[in-house]
Design a protein around this nucleic acid. Structure first.
Lengths: 127, 127
DNA sequence: CAGTATCCTGTATGATACTG
DNA sequence: CAGTATCATACAGGATACTG
């Protein structure tokens, strides 16, 4: 039996929701960080530079909700909470890494293209 | 000479800007649509269900600015404008497709996980 | 430490109307 | 047809303060 063929180009396709989640600012970075192994909240906060406590919490909750990350609390003081990719979450690493790699490879070219584009736009007179 | 190793985990890394662009709601879908070959504005609008004229224009301008898409205007009435992936844009297809494929494969599981998660959350009493 | 709760702002996105 | 311009708004996301 084959998987029913969803069409992301249909606005009602649930894959749109998944795509939205995957495509948010922090998910890529958090999943990438967790690829190295389980991490505590504070370690993640340090690793993913610039993420606010709120956004990190929210991103992790969403990943947990989607079954991509597990959250383990150790009953001790001060509390210690570890996050780890699930099997499903681990499979996400591949496309994420592909994206990260692509980004690294093309970043320079893109920044240069932007510079060029903006330069030419600036030359155009105001209508 | 090797490429300088950028670190997307640093908040000042330009890759963050690239990642943001790639991760917006429509870019993945537009690039995916253009994978089939050059398309007119109206064809894209039809293919990418739910995108507004404004957002499609904006997405295409950004892709053009980044050197990932070319815009060709044919001087005729009514106007005809075709968009096509550049070589650079074509390379983006691979990671994008990987993401699309992953999404298709895991969508069901994710939706199920969400359902479960929300169910258990609903059981918890209000503090 | 690992959150939650609040407040506040900018930006992303949509709807609508107009034009070369 | 392929846009641009304008208006309106929801929500992402940051700053800050408090807590088990």
């Amino acid at each position: 039996m084959t998987v029913l063929e969803w069409d992301p180009y249909d606005r009602n396709c649930p894959s749109r929701q998944v795509l939205d989640r995957v495509g948010d600012r922090w998910t890529v970075l958090v999943v990438g960080a967790l690829a190295a192994g389980p991490m505590r909240f504070s370690e993640l906060a340090e690793r993913v530079d610039g993420v606010s406590q709120k956004m990190l919490t929210q991103t992790l909750r969403n990943l947990e909700r989607d079954g991509l990350v597990t959250r383990t609390m150790y009953a001790q003081i001060p509390p210690r909470v570890e996050y780890e990719l699930t099997d499903s979450g681990t499979t996400l690493q591949l496309p994420m890494k592909a994206l990260e790699d692509w980004t690294k490879e093309h970043m320079r070219g893109i920044m240069a293209a932007r510079y060029e584009y903006d330069l030419h736009k600036a030359e155009l007179p105001k209508p």
